[in-house]
Design a protein around this nucleic acid. Sequence first.
DNA 1: GGTTAGCACTTGTGCATGTTGAGTGCTAAG
DNA 2: CTTAGCACTCAACATGCACAAGTGCTAACC
Lengths: 335, 335
Amino acid sequence: MSEPRKLEVLRAIVEDYVHSREPVGSKALVERHHLGVSSATIRNDMAVLEEEGLIAAPHTSAGRIPTDKGYRLFVDRISQVKPLSAAERRAIHSLLEGPDDVDDILERTVRLLSQLTNQVAVVQYPHSNRALVRHVEFVLLAPKQVLVVLIADTGSVGQKVIEAGSDVGDDALMLLRSRFLGSIAGTQLALLPQVLPSVVALCQPELRGLAQTLAHGLQALSDNSREERILMAGTANLARSNVDFPLSIGPVLEALEEQVVMLRLLSDMGDDPRGVTVSIGRENPYDGLAEASVVATGYGSGAKVGILGPTRMDYPTTMAAVRAVARYLSRILGG
Amino acid sequence: MSEPRKLEVLRAIVEDYVHSREPVGSKALVERHHLGVSSATIRNDMAVLEEEGLIAAPHTSAGRIPTDKGYRLFVDRISQVKPLSAAERRAIHSLLEGPDDVDDILERTVRLLSQLTNQVAVVQYPHSNRALVRHVEFVLLAPKQVLVVLIADTGSVGQKVIEAGSDVGDDALMLLRSRFLGSIAGTQLALLPQVLPSVVALCQPELRGLAQTLAHGLQALSDNSREERILMAGTANLARSNVDFPLSIGPVLEALEEQVVMLRLLSDMGDDPRGVTVSIGRENPYDGLAEASVVATGYGSGAKVGILGPTRMDYPTTMAAVRAVARYLSRILGG
DNA sequence: GGTTAGCACTTGTGCATGTTGAGTGCTAAG
DNA sequence: CTTAGCACTCAACATGCACAAGTGCTAACC
């Protein structure tokens, strides 16, 4: 038996199964793909593939379906990325237009990606580790309530309401604002924890309590901007693609709602700089996603964008879409 | 036949059906509820109820299930709001603790509500029509890029990146900031469109172009804060409650993702100040929700909070939960 | 008049049974 | 190594049947 044909058979099985949702048998294979051999030969090949754990049969007299391992081999060694259609390119291009607002862009990105792939699209807010402090603002909302605003040079704005121990004077607040602003403007958000204490220490004793509170607020904001959020779209696709197939949708929805889970999932996926990373079925650390695959890649300065769908998905097309979207996203946000 | 008993029968049917998910027959009714009559009598009553369109039989020899109209009557005239359990009260109470940040509170609110009701919880961001301008900030991000920040006295912060036609000077920006701040601090966001032009008109000619651009940005932000958003949680409950029942989950997820749809739905629901409003099955304007019900009510200054679930839901308990949560929400945010 | 017991009737559900067809694995020959 | 042939397996589908749940109706009852 020839090794190349074995892989060819696996590819045919994966493609047919993804397309038809039904176990594929030896006879159907030789008909649909012009492999130059008979069904019996294919059967032998399939027996070997099954022995190697790449495909499995749901029951004795059904066709075979790929296992997680089979998909893995397919993705790693067999599939070649499909080029996008002109229409798809155009759709992605149109992302370039419109306002520069990060929120808007990400919002449109997930929508586009979910439509392109018919899966659930997920995007992580851009990392702002390297972001610099651009501006600080303290606003008195109530006698003991101060709104702390931290603006980074990336245009991202963090806000937080804090409670002061005692009444706060407007002029004291102004003073502290310029004090803080003078000390931390231009420093990296990530460095705030080291810089802030010294600012507090330099304050007059009577302001130190308030300064401390405000510093806490600022630090929380900088942590907050690192504690990334995700945005998603296309959850309805989950229901659609599983209309007659039992990917129990419940656990998947749960996972999607737990931002923490998704964030860990994405960051655990290691960033292959050459292309997209795929995590298939039980390879996923989270049990609820045992029948799901994640296709993701980094963009900009390391945040992730990707999709989530059933293991039975069209990997080449999906990977192409994710990669293309990530590239455009990098171009827009990175530039 | 007595009218009160007829209603009693309807109530029993609704309650049993909600509980068991199965059509309920005359015999089971007399056993489970000690109505003082025989099953034959119940059958007669049920025939009448069916004639009035309040219940229906899936097929000839099955029990009856309530129709939308039946649920409607049940909600309007029969059910009485169940008091919450002590544990539930406690859970809601604990909402009072923790940070005052609006985002945080709403986030926790939807989570809580979805757990309380086992449905999808939805909350609309508070209206800020009456909000006053508290602070304005212009931050130069790049030579031609300005970040406009608008802070309201409610603590809500709006942000937007705008492109200037030509290079912007830092001092010009400072000047304009104090000019704008002086003119519009304390005015209602809703009034900005009327106030801003005069501010622009008062500027020196050489600054007028930039001022105009900034004014546009501010106005967009004030519009933006009126263009409400919604937050939701518990979509996984949809999958759970429909494990063996065909509320096609796809259209519902689609509706939930379209904020516009949900916003219209919520605002169309009219605000009954005495309690919660319920929209049942086909009463919903959106087709995808033909098998779903929405239970919602207003909080604070008119924004909505509520849940969405299958028509077959435990209305009394759900309504109690929604009402209680809305009250606490009003207390926290309104105070 | 409202209520009830009794009974015939309808119909979904579960079960056993048989049939079909897709698909496999094996063997023996090319 | 490939292939034709064949026996075998098993899900899916259909058919027939008994059963149980539930109804509607009628006639008797208070």
